[in-house]
Amino acid sequence: MTTAPSSPRPLRADARRNRRRVLEAARAAFEEAGNEAQMEDIAKRAGVGVGTIYRHFPTKQALIDELTAEWMADGAAKAADALAEPDPWDGVVLFVRRSADIMVRNRGLREVFGDVGQLFEEDAPVQNHDLQVKVAALLARAHTAGVLRADVGVNEFRALMCGLAMAITNTPPGAHQLYADVILKGLKAP
């Protein structure tokens, strides 16, 4: 007779609070310093010991993966807002501009999106089906309305957004709007 695998025990209330504090501190640290953020600094921000971080996230990459999942969920929410725009082109514009605004403030997100291969491979450690579906719907709606270039699909759009992330790195204040404008002009159907 085989026994069914046991499901992981739910976290105690204090462990859940510590995990949330670690994630909030890590999010702030990675937004500021990107991959240069140190676990010791995150622990200090969260008011916990480094061991607490490692109990929840065995490696720095595991913590980055968790943050990436949160950032992608945020992106899915942005895409949903863009889909709610009545005009298909306005929806694309809203998504690109909001993404640029967030990227300018979030170094960690720029670094994650700057690595196109890591983020969009089929076997990538972190994926968000909801984000993919919503962005595809946003683009399909714009294609149907004839406002988006016919030769721009999901893969091309992803590459452009990843390029936007890299272009924003180390730019003067406000330059991200210029880069978003250039991308939008290139996306617009003739």
Rank of each mutant, 00 (worst) to 15 (best):
A140V: 03
A189S: 11
C162I: 09
K185V: 07
E111D: 03
D101N: 05
V104L: 08
L109N: 05
Q38S: 15
I53V: 06
A167E: 09
R97S: 09
Y54D: 04
D14N: 14
G47I: 08
N18T: 15
G153A: 01
A137W: 08
G114M: 01
V116P: 10
Q61L: 06
V50H: 06
A145C: 00
A175W: 07
G47V: 07
R110L: 00
R45K: 15
V96E: 04
D151E: 01
A167R: 09
R45W: 12
E70Q: 15
T3W: 11
D41V: 09
G174D: 06
V182N: 05
A189Y: 04
R45A: 10
E31S: 03
I42C: 10
E122H: 11
A150W: 08
E66G: 10
V50K: 15
G49N: 11
A150F: 06
D41S: 15
L94G: 06
L67V: 11
E122L: 14
V133F: 04
K78S: 13
V96L: 08
N106K: 10
G34S: 03
L164W: 06
M39Y: 05
A175D: 07
P86V: 09
L178V: 10
S99G: 14
R97P: 00
K78F: 12
V182P: 03
A76C: 04
F157E: 02
E122D: 14
A124C: 12
G108C: 01
A69K: 09
T171A: 11
R17T: 11
M1G: 14
F120P: 13
A167N: 13
L187V: 05
E111Y: 00
L160Y: 13
V112Q: 10
P125S: 06
D151Q: 01
G117A: 14
P172L: 10
A69P: 05
G186K: 02
R20K: 13
F113P: 02
V152K: 00
K44I: 12
G117N: 12
G153F: 01
P125E: 05
R21D: 12
Q132S: 12
E111I: 00
R21Q: 09
R97C: 00
E121L: 08
A15V: 12
Y54F: 05
V96W: 08
M103G: 02
M72W: 13
A136N: 00
T52H: 11
N35L: 13
G186T: 00
G108K: 00
G153M: 04
Q38L: 14
D90R: 14
R107S: 01
D151V: 00
P172F: 10
L11M: 11
A137P: 03
G47Y: 07
F157N: 01
T2L: 14
K188H: 15
L184P: 12
A29M: 03
A62M: 02
D115T: 04
L184V: 01
P86M: 07
R9E: 14
A69R: 15
N128F: 00
R9C: 09
